[in-house]
Design a protein around this nucleic acid. Structure first.
Lengths: 359, 359
DNA sequence: CTGAAAGCGCTTACAG
DNA sequence: CTGAAAGCGCTTACAG
């Protein structure tokens, strides 16, 4: 069954002429041995190529020095960047970090969460991205040592680390009104998610403060993906009076919107202004470079791990922390046209950039 | 130490009035019990909320039903997409997949590889991205059940899954010569890597067959990142006769080149044609949409997991498999200008697209 | 200070 | 067919 050749602590003890207990204690630094004895152990370890079996250690200690990160979609650039930063910080603190891709399925999240029970991991960073039907909160409250990252699981007893959603959405919306827009649309992810509620809430608030009503036709909730962005734009395009600007609640949505604009011959920002949220890698190279609210994935990953490690070690935990955001202005926003792009149609030949000639 | 409340197989046995052996065998499907007995066990499991301790099982069985993926940089979009696809396939085959981010450090790769030794994982998919100094090949040959994905570790005894690097590079290069270019540069990752050797090899071969020499000034090896792309472009820009086209061996390099072009006012493809490799998410939305060699991350992930699971189960393994690639033509390539962009300078006002006005 | 022994929660020859 | 017992490789009270 087992690798036949792997040597054990018992082999080392025998070779060094001491007890298993002594070897274990010495290797774990819980004891100070005469130089001569410790040297015998060292050389036995070397000769036998002894490496402690982590599984056995966990089984008896109940700790693994490993933490887990459950992510709804590792191929989403922001999440991948957070995972990368988290791994780096975990490593700095002496932990391994393993990443689980849940594909946003509750069943997978639950299964991974169970790894806390048998000490496969000491704790878990949970980045869920769907509304909870109750199973998640129950499980989280059963296992301890979970921290909620990026999105909430309402009712869970756990530390939380979220972006400053309200602040960021406020900045984005204000930028649009400052550029003279009043027909402003909101495109968001799943409506029940914290990020949606907070970002849409701030969007509404800024508009109201500016004395502009939010038009129900200009509000679209979907998933945080390109498809939803495309769908939203297509729906707006059927309106008699389409919006002159869109605040997209995530960069993937913005990418879908951009795709839709290409298909329909809508120029950004000349016909339609666009501001987004996340600032994932390389959106500065898009056509046009995207104006968006920056979230620091590095800070997100680092602080999340810090919180979890503190939690695992039994520290008193803050209830909820926020990571700061900032608006980075690039070139996807301008003042609104006099005429709607809808009515203006495609009679914009002179403005068509040469790089689009082939479309 | 341990969670005080977790119930064990012994509790279940006691509650059901049978032996631990019987419970274990029944739960593992190795025995057929009278309906009445099996019902007693079922209800005991339910009442006690018994969940087998995976660690203990592994320790005694020596298998974990988990496989690992070591990736050099999870924030690289192609790798993240491969990881995502791999998780899906592993799940389909009844395995968990855990992902390790090695940040391309040999020490981390070695540490993760060791998890095979103590049955934390049954096998590992290794995506390294640096030349091996010998440590890796030794470790791989010591543990079995490793498959090499995307890049090679020369000398390792292991199944391999690579892209059709030569075919893809040939397509890309041919596309450039077909568009009339002869002053073609190559920008690659680390020279010692398989991907570099194979792609550069095909690049040379296609050019030679077309009767054009490869100019040593037009060859640049760096890392597979934006910085290297930028550096390469800046170096080419110092040349008296710069290239009219570049084959970048990876999309991240192309992104760096695009950044450099913006800084220097070089228009792509008018001044400089660019073709790349990978076809990561959203490069169709760049300015200009990138012509690049497509690799299917989904196929990569799926086949890699299939190979590993077969390997773990002791199947005869093929030596090396390839995933097919194809050129996707977008808009970053055109015929070369009559005059070099270097000498043409910036007197290109009429061609400047409006979306660049703010640069 | 050291070590023999029990225990972590499973699986599985082996004996009945 | 069933179960008592040994074993997987560690850690750690406990006794000397």
């Amino acid at each position: 069954m087992k690798k036949p050749t792997a040597s054990t602590i018992r082999n080392v003890a025998h070779a060094a002429g001491v007890s298993v207990t002594t070897v274990s204690r010495h290797l774990n630094g819980r004891i100070k041995l005469p130089a001569e004895t410790s040297e015998r152990i060292r050389s036995a370890v070397a000769k036998l190529e002894y490496r402690p079996n982590a599984l056995a250690r966990r089984l008896s200690k109940g700790r693994s020095e490993t933490i887990g990160l459950i992510v709804s979609d590792i191929s989403y650039p922001l999440f991948a960047a957070i995972a990368s930063a988290a791994e780096e910080e975990a490593s700095r603190l002496g932990y391994s970090l393993v990443t689980f891709n849940s594909r946003n399925m509750a069943a997978k999240e639950l299964a991974f969460l169970s790894r806390i029970d048998d000490a496969q991991v000491d704790g878990i960073l949970l980045m869920t991205n769907h509304p909870d039907d109750g199973a998640l909160v129950e499980k989280i409250n059963a296992c301890s040592n979970v921290v909620l990252v990026d999105e909430d699981v309402p009712g869970a007893i756990a530390p939380r680390l979220f972006a400053d959603n309200r602040g960021g959405a406020g900045l984005a919306t204000a930028h649009l009104v400052e550029n003279g827009h009043t027909a402003i649309a909101f495109v968001g992810g799943p409506q029940a998610l914290l990020s949606s509620k907070e970002r849409f809430g701030a969007f509404e608030e800024v508009l109201n403060n500016a004395g502009v009503d939010v038009n129900p036709d200009f509000v679209f909730f979907g998933e945080y993906d390109e498809e939803s962005g495309l769908l939203a734009l297509q729906r707006f395009a059927t309106l008699d009076n389409p919006p002159t600007a869109i605040f997209a609640s995530g960069d993937m949505l913005a990418l879908g919107i951009l795709q839709g604009c290409r298909k329909l011959g809508i120029l950004v920002p000349a016909d339609l202004s666009l501001v987004s949220f996340d600032d994932i890698r390389n959106v500065d190279l898009l056509d046009p470079p995207l104006t968006t609210v920056h979230q620091s994935a590095a800070e997100f990953g680092r602080r999340a791990v810090g919180l979890l490690v503190d939690h695992v070690n039994g520290a008193d935990m803050p209830d909820i922390e926020r990571v700061a955001v900032e608006l980075v202005v690039r070139q996807s926003v301008s003042a609104p046209r006099k005429t709607h792009w809808k009515s203006a149609g495609n009679a914009l030949g002179t403005q068509q950039p040469p790089s689009r000639a082939g479309l």
